[in-house]
Design a protein around this nucleic acid. Structure first.
Lengths: 214, 214, 214, 214
DNA sequence: TATGAATGAGTTTTCATTCAT
DNA sequence: AATGAATGAAAACTCATTCAT
């Protein structure tokens, strides 16, 4: 039997183990959530133990998503704090896209949140997830407002739209290995540009339009 | 037992019945695909009959999605053909958003395509769906190229990005009734602007940036 | 694959198959309901097929119980119809107890109805089970009223009390094999009289007291 | 952490705490045994601690049942000791029924003993429970024999049958709140007489028949 | 003794799909 | 072509009990 997680710190560690097992398995097949049994196996725990730390399987993945969201928002805040002006918007966009690259599960998971993840969660969990998200977004928006001298509240809007472009493009341009083979023919080229390149360009165009007085 | 659909026309009719039953049921609860049994019941057919017209349940909804996609692309083509210059980009955006409003199932279905619909389809079906999509997109892109005097191929890119913004915003801003109640608190206001308004603004900003020489 | 039960008669047959499989398995271990899987296996059907005929596992056993109840009530009605007077109450009691002997699962199942069976059933099923029961009881009571020249309604009461004595004694005196071994010591003799003997005596005493004018 | 129960008295106290917590929870929902976790919570102990005092969850409830049985038998003994003749059998029946009323969990628990409680107990526990029961019954039977001038051993029989009528009627006439609503229709009246009234009448009839020389 | 973290067996039911009629 | 009876895989979660601390 496993060593027991008695104090808060150990428990946090165990929770993190579960999350990391879930992340790993999800990356192996991003089209569906891994089973609770497989997550338990991968984290070296019994099934029941997993349910000691999360109330439903979906909660695990929403927690993962929350981590990633927090990470993005932090990246944004860091970018726009202190010395940001040296980089300009293009610099921000680059940093942002690079961050996304470091979190390959993020956008895949995000694409399931609307139709899969939010299905089987307690209202409380869902609400508190959305609340954290909102607060993080507002905080980051405020940093933007300051850094760019925007009308208060404009920062949140820009972030929301930036994020919309991101998730929208991802879902248009990411193909699982199987489909990639299926769409290898050059005729499909128009719908298969590279995600990263496309995102950078699209965001640059958007921000150019958005920052322009009109 | 139903009268048999012998000739091609009858068959097309029966197929349409199934599609319309599926659309109706999906609109009643857009968070999950209706069951095959309920679709059969709603269309007045037996379960087995439905499977004579579609190989899997998901195919039904992809067919629905294909119809809607074709509709959007048609709307785009119409807008940019002939007399379009009287409207300008803002006019196009308005028409586009209005069209979306008339197809309430479209974006909901679209939000499931990445993680649900494309899961359980034959490769053939998937490929031919994507092929139609690509061709339609390229055709519409060409119309844009002509109407706006763009570098050939630029039109497709603009459409792809326009669509990315649309689906991204939709997934950020559409909440099912249950969640709407859950997020009624004003603290959630920043993540709950009106979809239509937000989409119009975001698209205007994007197109402004995109059309600007740089 | 199995031959399909198309018409009503075949379906009734299939239903009966399931019931008889369930009865058999229950008799093998009367302390808990057999699993749905084992019932399917025993009746040579797939699990899903069982659920085509019964909405929950408990419904199967309640159906069994209903059959047995109907049987008892029929036995009562037959006993008291026509030529009954030749037998007297003692004759009725004998017939009744003999009938019970022929249905070894009946009282075991009955002992679970209060705490197990009625747990996982739809309200509709439960209500209609109770309704049938009530009607049968009232009908049999009426036959008693006539045969014995009782105040109308008295028959139902007598049946209810007769049944109470039966189930009460059963639960006091029936021991599963394991427990029988455990209670082999003569010290336990006072709580281990033979069920049948005891029931006959108790019923005779009860009816003697009940039929006596007072 | 709770103060440790070192001496026998403390232990008995703790045991009593658990029993009273279990009784309380069972009264709140008499259709199923409360969970071990809830019993621990309600008694202010840890789950593991409960298992220091009882080997299985069922043992707790059998202990409860044993307490109640002892109570009934005591009531019987008291009734028939000393001055009992002033009351007559009817007086005894009344006292008995009144005692039952004061122990609302008793018959509910009893109804589970056959199919639920005796399932998951150690043989030792089960045997010693039955032994106590037998001894108590024999003792009470003897008191009856004396008070009523019966053939030795007849008292036990009368008690056993009295109890059979009691538990049989209870299971026929007690309905949980949900079912009560379901059976509100007057058509169900025949199976819904009042338990107490019915029990008193049935016992009077039985004892009349039983005490009569024949 | 007391604790509560960890265990893992155990089972119903759904529902997309097939195929005998 | 149409039917609908039959199939059977698939998986989340609970909870009594144990045992390391």
């Amino acid at each position: 039997m496993l060593q027991r997680a008695i104090d808060t710190e150990d428990k946090a560690l165990r929770r993190a183990d579960i999350l990391s097992a879930a992340r790993k398995l999800f990356l192996e097949d991003s089209r569906q959530l891994p089973s609770a049994a497989s997550i338990a196996r991968e984290s070296g725990l019994a099934k029941g133990t997993v349910y000691l730390y999360f109330r439903t399987k979906e909660e695990i993945f929403v927690a993962l998503l929350a981590e990633d969201f927090a990470g993005v928002l932090n990246a944004v805040i860091e970018t726009f704090s202190g010395t940001w002006q040296t980089e300009g918007i293009a610099g921000f966009i680059n940093r942002y896209v690079t961050y996304l690259d470091s979190r390959p599960e993020f956008l895949r998971l995000d694409a399931m949140s609307y139709s899969v993840l939010e299905q089987n969660m307690g209202d409380d969990q869902l609400r508190s997830f959305k609340l954290d998200l909102t607060r993080g977004l507002v905080a980051a928006g405020r940093v933007l407002d300051n850094a760019l001298g925007l009308v208060p509240g404009r920062g949140v809007t820009l972030l929301l739209r930036t994020y919309a472009i991101t998730r929208g493009l991802w879902q248009s341009l990411d193909f699982p290995p199987t489909m990639r083979a299926l769409l290898a023919d050059p005729e499909f080229a128009p719908i298969r540009p590279n995600f990263r390149t496309e995102l950078v360009e699209a965001l640059n165009e958007y921000w150019r339009g958005a920052m322009q007085t009109n």
